[in-house]
């Protein structure tokens, strides 16, 4: 098992700066996704109300997929999810190959950016799961960085247990939901 360690520190940026940077990343994502949305559009099974970010974002984040009803439809983009144990954020050995493959794709597409989304199963409190999802997203980001992907191309977000792709109360379902999803924006 690979336990990704992180140091502390580096909490230096001003809030406005950080928010600004994120907004910039999101706007980039929207603009970039717009270019490839047409060929992906047919994978969206259940179009719902348009998201505030517009049609072109429909293969973007899990939240925008949830908004337009396509979450869990398999429109996952070029990178594969990885999965976690219960209440755990360590990268599992079998996911090393997935991350290497994801890193290779990112290294082959240097203009692309990725937002790593941490997700949790439905058990536990919403707030603890948001923090746990942040750990899971950061674990994958750190792993991708060790594989040569520039940290500046990788953002993270946690959706906690809010966006399950499987809603039955079974271990199999929970295992699918304990995931990092990689939303590529080019």
């Amino acid at each position: 098992m690979t336990r990704v360690q992180r140091g502390r520190g580096g909490w230096v940026s001003s809030s406005r700066g950080m928010v600004g940077a994120r907004v910039a990343v999101m706007l980039c994502a929207i603009l970039v996704v717009a270019g490839c949305s047409s060929k992906k559009a047919k994978q969206v099974n259940a179009p719902g109300p348009a998201s505030p970010l517009g049609e072109q974002n429909q293969n973007g984040s899990s939240l925008s997929q949830f908004q337009n009803g396509s979450l869990g439809s398999g429109a996952n983009g070029p990178l594969s999810d990885i999965h976690f144990g219960y209440n755990d954020y360590t990268i599992q050995p079998q996911d090393g190959d997935v991350l290497r493959s994801n890193a290779k794709w990112l290294n082959d597409h240097p203009q692309s950016r990725v937002q790593v989304e941490g997700h949790c199963d439905e058990r536990g409190s919403e707030d603890y799961n948001i923090a746990l999802g942040a750990k899971r997203a950061q674990a994958a980001k750190d792993y991708l960085v060790t594989l040569g992907v520039s940290p500046g191309r990788i953002s993270t977000i946690s959706y906690g247990k809010e966006l399950p792709i499987c809603t039955e109360q079974t271990e199999d379902c929970w295992a699918q939901n304990r995931r990092d999803h990689f939303a590529v924006s080019q």
Binding site: R6, G10, Y89, A131, A134, K135, A137, Q138
Partner: peptide
């Protein structure tokens, strides 16, 4: 406030203006 940065979440006391 519970504030998350780089996967780590810590608690801070803030004014209402942050």
């Amino acid at each position: 406030a519970a504030v998350e940065h780089a996967g780590t979440t810590n608690l801070f006391i803030l004014t209402r203006d942050g």
